[in-house]
């Protein structure tokens, strides 16, 4: 077979277009960032304006200034723009009904991603930086959010109070500090300003064990915002030996289907050199291997 010849070819020419009184006025307006429509004989407003309406009736020549915003009537997403396209990134073609107009204008929507597009969405006009007296003086339309950003930024200095400070300092030393109410003898972890039952400060500090009984728990399988761990993981209530109420912590070092209410657990501490004023010094609680505690013995803590 003989070889076929081939060469590149570009058809290019800039025409000189007469725009007439209606389209010309519209495009001239765009230079000054003015958006206008024209009124028809039967009282409708068309934007972009035309000299004759779809029935062939001459439009009136009465111009109406419009807001630079509108509603998407239909659209198409272009993931890979062609050279000729007005935007060099993914965008949508759309028919946009300008507010106050009865027809729609073809233009593009710079929405970033297809999932932001929907029929009926509100868009606003973005003007081109350099004007050329063409429809490209409208650079594109962009999604109008029904929301406005409401940023709040406030800088605080917090302190945790005396009792909680004592508790955190204890953790820094590898101790779990509780507060004992002198009257009831109950030990609260952490210590607090008022015993819930007597109302008096739990001001006598005592050290409680870093082991105890797992009373109840949940296996967390859901990802959520702000989460530090990858699900699934176990979170449970532990009544430490020497304490009269539970603390909450992670349970690990055991398959999830072997975690039981009443299981004896002990703290797994971080290496000592990493200890700070934080409960995070304890990585998690793990089984001690001791026999389970009977339900009746921890039922009052549920």
């Amino acid at each position: 077979m003989s070889e076929i010849l081939s060469a590149p070819y570009v058809l290019e020419y800039t025409y000189t277009r007469s725009t007439g009184p209606v389209v010309g006025r519209f495009l001239e307006g765009l230079r000054y960032e003015v958006l206008e429509g024209v009124r028809t004989a039967d009282g409708r407003v068309l934007c972009p304006p035309v000299e004759y309406d779809e029935q062939g009736e001459a439009t009136t020549g009465e111009f109406v200034q419009l807001r630079p915003s509108g509603t998407v009537k239909t659209w198409s997403w272009v993931e890979e723009p062609r050279k000729s396209h007005p935007l060099d990134r993914p965008f949508a073609w759309a028919l946009i009904q300008i507010d106050g107009a009865d027809n729609s204008m073809l233009h593009v929507v710079d929405a970033g991603e297809a999932k932001r597009m929907r029929t009926g969405m509100r868009v606003r006009l973005r003007w081109a930086e350099h004007k050329s007296g063409t429809i490209r003086d409208i650079a594109c339309f962009e999604p109008m959010s029904p929301f406005m950003p409401g940023p709040v930024h406030l800088e605080y200095e917090v302190n945790p109070g005396q009792h909680y400070s004592a508790y955190l300092r204890g953790l820094q030393r590898g101790q779990i500090i509780g507060g004992k109410d002198p009257e009831s003898g109950k030990v609260y972890v952490p210590p607090r300003a008022a015993d819930p039952v007597t109302g008096r400060p739990t001001s006598e500090y005592v050290e409680v064990a870093d082991r105890g009984v797992l009373t109840t728990f949940t296996i967390i399988r859901i990802p959520f915002e702000g989460q530090k761990l990858k699900p699934p993981y176990c979170f449970g209530a532990i009544v430490l030996d020497g304490a009269d109420m539970p603390i909450y912590h992670l349970i690990s070092g055991v398959p999830h289907d072997e975690i039981r209410m009443g299981m004896r657990v002990k703290a797994k501490w971080k290496p000592k050199e990493q200890w700070q004023t934080s409960l995070e010094n304890i990585l998690y609680f793990e089984p001690t291997g001791e026999p389970d505690v009977p339900f009746e013995e921890y039922e009052e803590h549920l």
Partner: peptide, 24 residues
């Protein structure tokens, strides 16, 4: 005042009640 909420509330409420011989 270096105190958290309970540490503010406990002494001031206790004092208001004690002045007139009341408890919670």
């Amino acid at each position: 005042i270096h105190a958290d909420e309970p540490e503010l509330v406990q002494p001031v409420t206790a004092a208001a009640m004690e002045q007139i011989g009341l408890t919670q």
